[in-house]
């Protein structure tokens, strides 16, 4: 079954299709949530919320609006950000780590049993400072192009091309 059919089945509330999609993307979603929340128990919770939300709002997704992965990614970033803004969270965690995804990957022991572990670790160790920030902001934090440009003090037009060359390196290593 191709991805398109899978998503259609999922939209018709087919639990099997949902499970397949879940297995494709849950680690990524978990990674993004954890990068924002920085607490593995809380991020487990948020990930569940995210997929439940995707399940119950399945019919609101349309391919024309973007990739399915991107759709779930958006739900996840919003849910994670809502979580860290919540009062309960703020009182339990006074200060969040300032590490970036690269630091998490470098110290991630869970990675050892993944086949791409070596490639990914190699990728982040070779990544330039600007690439680290662009990827962090665009994919993990969901910054807009404009926000990235402002944070890095580079022209807005440069964000796109710079990001492309960063992702190109990633593709060379992991695909």
């Amino acid at each position: 079954m191709n991805l398109e059919q899978l998503i259609l089945q999922f939209q018709k509330k087919d639990a099997k299709a949902f499970e397949t999609l879940y297995n494709m993307y849950s680690d990524s979603i978990h990674g993004v949530v954890y990068n924002i929340v920085r607490d593995s128990a809380i991020s487990d919770e948020v990930v569940q919320d995210v997929f439940l939300k995707a399940w119950s709002n399945a019919e609101s997704y349309s391919q024309k609006k973007g990739r399915f992965f991107t759709w779930v990614l958006n739900i996840a970033r919003n849910a994670a950000i809502d979580k860290i803004r919540s009062k309960a969270f703020k009182t339990s965690k006074q200060n969040l780590d300032v590490d970036f995804f690269v630091d998490i990957i470098a110290g991630n022991t869970n990675l050892e049993n993944q086949t791409d572990a070596i490639g990914i670790k190699k990728f982040v160790s070779q990544l330039g400072e600007k690439c680290k920030l662009i990827i962090e902001f665009l994919y993990f934090k969901g910054y807009t192009q404009k926000e990235v440009a402002e944070s890095l003090e580079i022209p807005i037009g440069t964000v796109k091309t710079r990001n492309r060359s960063c992702i190109q390196k990633l593709r060379d290593i992991v695909l």
Binding site: A15, F18, N23, D27, H30, V32, W55, Y139, R171
Partner: peptide
């Protein structure tokens, strides 16, 4: 592009959450 981002983001996941963990919730719903 998507495949590479899926792999990269998965690498920051500290542990997997099994689908079974909330399978009940969706069937209930």
């Amino acid at each position: 592009i998507e495949a590479s981002i899926v792999k990269l983001t998965a690498a920051t996941s500290p542990n997997s959450v099994k689908f079974d963990a909330f399978k009940d919730k969706i069937t209930d719903a």
